[in-house]
Amino acid sequence: MSTATPAPDQSALSLSVLDLVPVRTGQTSAQAVAASLALAATADRLGFRRFWFAEHHNMPAVASTTPPVLAAAAAARTTRIRVGSGGVMLPNHSPLVVAEQFAALEALAPGRVDLGIGRAPGSDPVITQMLRQSGTTSDVERFPEHVRDIAALVSPEGASLRFTSGGTYDVHATPAATGAPEVWLLGSSDYSAQLAASFGLPYVFANHFSGQGLERALDLYRTQFQPSEHLSAPRTFLTANAVAAPTAEEAEARSLPNQRMMARLRTNKPLVPAETVEQALAGAADFDGLATEIMASARTGWFVGTGADVASALTAFAAKHGVDEVMISPIAGAYDAEPMDAAIGRTQTLELIAAALGL
């Protein structure tokens, strides 16, 4: 009698997308944004649940500097999918400004807006200092207070400021809200997991960036969760880097530019626009043993292969960690001959995985 383990139930898995708006060699910001907005429309058509934009600054290969602006553009080009941030790096911004931006988004796309909040800088120390020239609102130690403020400000009821001398002052992120964006806490540490649990907010561990500590963070979040007006039980999903192609060989080739980008980041080499596949292959001799080790280490946590293989692996990954949703960052690189205003490899990744899952 066979004792083979049954295949995971792929029909139960929902997919979402995390987009950094990658900029490849020779590509303009306008072309990169056009490619990402077309990708959002594809995700909407295919049945993906969410499309989130990350916040990163002063990086030659990343154009996702302003999640609310990009989310508004994506909302205008889609009809069903939820749009939002993955995430807004709150210490860079005034809580009231963030609340107003996402309240406006909620008015543009009612019931389709997610506000993912993180506390990492999203850039280097120089840019972080420039972003945080707003005084006390940029105090990382006040992050919990600012999260609470935003959750109150974007609600239809608004928030009330209480003066030490007595009296209150009502504040609303928008004057006549009928709904509110869904607030998520993002992070890659015990701190973020415990804060989300104590606030009773949904939580996402940044597994696509670093898978270290994933199981501990999820356990802390689930065991320490306190029901709130926002959520009655823990709610989480996972992020993952993914590349799918018609063949495993093509998928591996398309993953190479991102492997090399990770090595540059972690060895303090000068950052450059995303290489094409041909450039990545031609530059193999540029990196030393440490960079090669970093590339190999990063690759072990990614989901790369045919659509069927990636779909199966993502389903098993979700089942292992008890979630029903995975947000993929489609990191497929481009070939030299591919058009600048389209993301052929990233679109192909979504299409092939979705087809294998039967979305």
Rank of each mutant, 00 (worst) to 15 (best):
S123I: 01
V140R: 10
L131E: 10
R142F: 00
G122D: 06
P144A: 04
M130V: 09
I117N: 05
E141T: 13
D124C: 00
T128P: 01
H146K: 14
Q129A: 15
G135L: 07
E141F: 01
V126F: 10
D139Q: 08
E145W: 06
V147T: 09
G135D: 12
R119G: 08
T136N: 03
S134W: 06
T137N: 09
T137Y: 06
I127W: 02
I150K: 02
R132T: 11
L131K: 04
I150R: 02
D124I: 00
G135Q: 09
V126T: 14
T136M: 07
G118I: 04
Q133F: 00
R148E: 15
E145Q: 14
I117A: 06
T128V: 08
A151G: 10
A151D: 10
D139S: 12
T136W: 02
R148T: 13
R119F: 08
R142L: 14
Q133V: 02
P121Q: 03
H146F: 13
G118Q: 03
G118A: 09
G135I: 12
D149T: 12
A151I: 08
G135H: 08
R119I: 08
S123A: 13
G118V: 03
T137Q: 13
R132V: 07
F143Q: 08
S138H: 10
R119D: 07
I150F: 03
R148A: 13
Q133K: 04
G122S: 06
T128L: 04
E145L: 13
P121D: 04
